[in-house]
Design a protein around this nucleic acid. Structure first.
Lengths: 335, 335
DNA sequence: GTGAAAGCGCTAACAT
DNA sequence: ATGTTAGCGCTTTCAC
């Protein structure tokens, strides 16, 4: 079904059909109705691809996240979807599962699709690919990653601060042997949270003789968190507190600790990161660093729209502050 | 950057460039290399839109789910993404948030994008729109909704059975006043789970004088679950057990019950549905009806590929069985 | 083995 | 107010 066939059906030219679609006011009311009727009758649906070829816009936004299974990203995507759908965009969602290679593949495909914009939480340490992508003229907004010197926008949460909040909390409770269960530090969030924890360590912990030991896992999932528990427990001296790079890891740790017969917070205090919906309902309720997930996605989408809008856009970073939410899992100090 | 410019750069015709892209073996090795070099140099990225216009395929699959914030759908999408990405497809993800209107809007857009296939968990009761969509020649697979008489494929879990398992469990524990906290019954999952619960009621409960009261909410979210607690508690006689249409609702109920000072399972037993990852770690651990989420998405995607493949495809339903996972929240019977 | 040319469905500039 | 036309970037015959 093409515009051409609709035109024949309504006994007008193809240009007129295009006009009732894009510029109805210039068409005489009677013709307009006739054409609309023909469109309905024919079940005509215009082709975005053809529009795109002609006009250049694909009405499509690429969204690249680290892990669609993580409620953090899910909330973030929801925020972005809400603002973008109101502007007629549809999301091409890509979950890299923290693999730089998968990320490259997806970015390639998104470029082939000529997305009108890109929202990305990069899995890769250096931003060359993303900058290159943006250099091809596609508005790009980083999420959870500062734009740095690059000509990009970003929406971020202060992860260094967040890491600091978590570590400071455990130290103030009296913990001296703290483990940091971290994901790949190629991921900025992981690197920054660690950095913050270390900073808290230096400012508060040094005098007190506190130590921060890092345990790394390949991916920030429940499974990896659970699998890391033996290694955590084998540390010498054993940690009395564990900070997890996100709530998924923390959930795994809670599960692993329970399986190992350790009590939380009695034997080990646990702090997560993200404050996903279910964190407050876990057993024990998880102390976590809250991020404004929905707002982050929405802000990134707004930045993208602004940039797409064109005229006089200036790249900038919208920054949110994390907040420590204290619950049972961090207890009241080591025994 | 077009194929034309690449051709000029490599001093060949545009047709030859197309050949090295789509049919490299027919091009002489030396020319092929020259062209590839030009492609690299020029940073050429082909346009899916143009390919689509010519060839008809968009390399895009529409995925319409009820709620992206629900880990159930997230896992399902992951399953679908894994199989589809290996075939060069990218997903256009649309979350209707259980709104039929939003669903219609999204389906329209997906049709304009000429997606090569559609995976959908319908929010709307009747399938007319979906059938119409499929009638336009777009392979369509229903998820979590039986295909019925329509010429469609589907991947489903036996929700009637699941509802039955949940109700039977509570009755076997001795509960006689059971509430069913349900979402909109326009959603088949909700209707079927209720149906199963009622069936269990008839087969086991009648003699025992058990009753099943339904409380409905507008949307199956944590918030709605929590908000429904007062209504649940105001029931006369008050229920000793609550079955929730999904785990998100159950999580909300758990939270609301805690806020109201009721203990679970002491005062009220709670059963969820989906067995999302965090269900086992809630306090108390949630008894739930497990569904094979990832497999469901993957199976639907496979069906879609099969149908896209064309030749000799026969519509069918891939059916999975739910499984009751008993944990603390359902306790050992009413006191 | 390589090039020329038609046309996919649409928009927008221009002609009537 | 309506019609005509040139291309957007590509694939795919068909000729050379």
């Amino acid at each position: 079904m093409t515009i051409r066939e609709v035109a024949d059906l309504a006994h007008v030219s193809l240009g007129t059909v295009s006009n009732v679609l894009n510029n109805p006011s210039v068409v005489a009311p009677s013709t307009r109705e006739r054409v609309r009727e023909a469109i309905r009758e024919a079940g005509f649906v215009r082709s975005t691809a053809a529009q795109q070829l002609r006009g250049g816009r694909s009405r499509t936004i690429g969204v690249v996240v680290l892990d669609i299974a993580n409620p953090f990203f899910t909330e973030m995507v929801r925020g972005a979807e809400h603002v973008l759908r109101d502007h007629g965009y549809v999301l091409m969602l890509c979950s890299t599962e923290e693999s730089p290679e998968q990320e490259r593949r997806y970015m390639r495909i998104l470029e082939e699709h000529r997305v009108d914009g890109l929202l990305i939480t990069p899995a890769e340490q250096d931003l060359d690919r993303v900058v290159e992508f943006a250099g091809h003229g596609i508005p790009t907004v980083l999420i959870d990653r500062e734009r740095g010197a690059q000509g990009l926008c970003s929406a971020t949460v202060d992860d260094v601060r967040g890491g600091e909040l978590a570590a400071r909390h455990l130290m103030e409770l009296g913990h001296r042997e703290i483990a940091f269960l971290n994901g790949p530090v190629t991921i900025r969030q992981c690197a920054d949270r660690r950095k913050g924890a270390r900073r808290a360590m230096r400012s508060l912990g040094q005098r007190a003789g506190a130590t921060l030991v890092e345990v790394g896992v390949a991916s920030t999932t429940v499974e990896h968190g659970e699998a890391a528990v033996p290694e955590l427990l084998a540390l010498d001296p054993p940690p009395t507190g564990v900070i997890c790079a996100n709530d998924l890891l923390a959930l795994g740790v809670l599960r692993g600790l329970a399986a190992a017969g350790r009590s939380v917070p009695g034997d080990v205090a646990v702090v997560g990161y993200d404050d996903v919906t279910f964190a407050s309902m876990l057993s024990p309720a998880l102390t976590s660093v809250r991020q404004p997930k929905y707002e982050l996605g929405a802000a990134a989408a707004e930045l993208l729209l602004e940039e797409t809008g064109g005229s006089g856009h200036e790249h900038r970073d919208v920054r949110f502050e994390p907040e420590l939410v204290v619950r049972a899992s961090s207890g009241s100090g080591p025994r």
